[in-house]
């Protein structure tokens, strides 16, 4: 019972990290000069999360847009008015397994914690000349 609190604290912290990362990535990707989420941005995000103890191979990034258009294509950014949707998920990693000692069933092995957000793109194509 005494250790259960520590595991819950780790779980809460991981969830906060994922949500913070979602907000940051959306903030960058929806800027007027981008309008998309590049693979470099994702790999930097994975490194940041890995530095906090998460395994980057277990992270899943789901990126989409409200128009259905791909939000990772630099040649076709999401225009102003459409939203970019991001969900980052990570497995529970057995953090709540210890609760079985007091009869509480842990989440299934497929269950994941996640951070989620939708933000409107500010991208506008600027034609020179």
């Amino acid at each position: 019972m005494m250790f259960s609190g520590i595991y819950t604290h780790v779980l809460l912290s991981r969830q906060v990290l994922l949500q913070q990362e979602v907000n940051y990535l959306l903030e960058v990707a929806t800027q007027a000069r981008y309008g998309y989420m590049s693979s470099a941005l994702i790999s930097e995000s994975k490194s940041r999360l890995a530095s906090h103890g998460l395994e980057d191979g277990k992270l899943i990034y789901l990126i989409s847009s409200t128009s259905g258009q791909s939000a990772v294509d630099a040649s076709h950014p999401i225009p102003r008015g459409e939203g970019i949707i991001l969900k980052i998920s990570y497995p529970f990693d057995g953090l709540l397994d210890i609760n079985q000692l007091v009869g509480i069933k842990p989440p299934s092995s497929e269950a994941r914690i996640n951070g989620f957000g939708q933000r409107m793109s500010e991208y506008i194509a600027v034609h020179e000349g």
Partner: peptide, 12 residues
């Protein structure tokens, strides 16, 4: 953040 995203979309 939810409120911020909503306002950011509204002002566009």
């Amino acid at each position: 953040h939810g409120l911020n995203h909503a306002v950011q979309a509204a002002v566009q």
